[in-house]
Design a binder for these strands. Structure first.
Lengths: 100, 100
DNA sequence: GCTATTGTTCGAATAATATCGAACTATGGA
DNA sequence: TCCATAGTTCGATATTATTCGAACAATAGC
């Protein structure tokens, strides 16, 4: 499967990040990634249809919030938290500090 | 004109705040309020139709981000930044620190 | 009371998102 | 090769937002 396009961190838009995180499902994915470091898409499905989950991962990826790499038949996702801290210092920590 | 309903700060949802701020127009309104402290709706119209601007103020108000009070025929808006800092510490400052 | 000013509300059109099944792609293992 | 696993993409539908003109409401001043 082909590699994903991830935006350069310098072209990540604040509005897109806020929008991506304004969805409860995507926010819960991000929270789980923050707790666990890395996870496959399947690990974050929680019983939802694959196609819906895949859509949410795409929104997060294109907003610049997560990075996805291939590993066999799986995709492994991780937060781009260090990069985000460069351009939006304190933003992700402030969001993750809110108890879900 | 009747008073506005403002949500109690304890019932303000993180998702709603992020969503409200993910719109460029609303974000620019919030930035301007942060700079100037208070402003009427007209001062923040920037040539847009009143009805559109009124809509955006409503979204911000119902998300718990601004407080609107009546003053004659005008409405005066201000950020609920102190209250937001109680429930989402560091969130608004992190967003406002990003240069628009 | 009349008029101007300020903003809200309504309604309709348009645009953007979400949802999810079905078909598809890619990898790994027997 | 055949099959299972893990996700993606497509397409259709449904929901939600945005936009903006027009009508309306409330206040101030004359």
């Amino acid at each position: 499967m082909r590699e994903y396009r991830h935006p350069q961190i310098t072209e990540v838009q604040l509005e897109s990040v806020l929008y991506a995180l304004s969805d409860p499902i995507r926010l819960s994915i991000v929270r789980q990634l923050a707790r666990e470091g890395e996870a496959t898409c399947a690990a974050l499905e929680n019983g939802r249809p694959k196609s819906s989950v895949s859509h949410h991962f795409r929104v997060l990826r294109e907003a610049g919030i997560i990075k996805t790499r291939n590993d066999g038949t799986s995709r492994i996702n991780e937060l781009r938290d260090n990069e985000l801290a460069e351009i939006f210092p304190g933003l992700l920590p402030a969001i993750l500090a809110v108890r879900g």
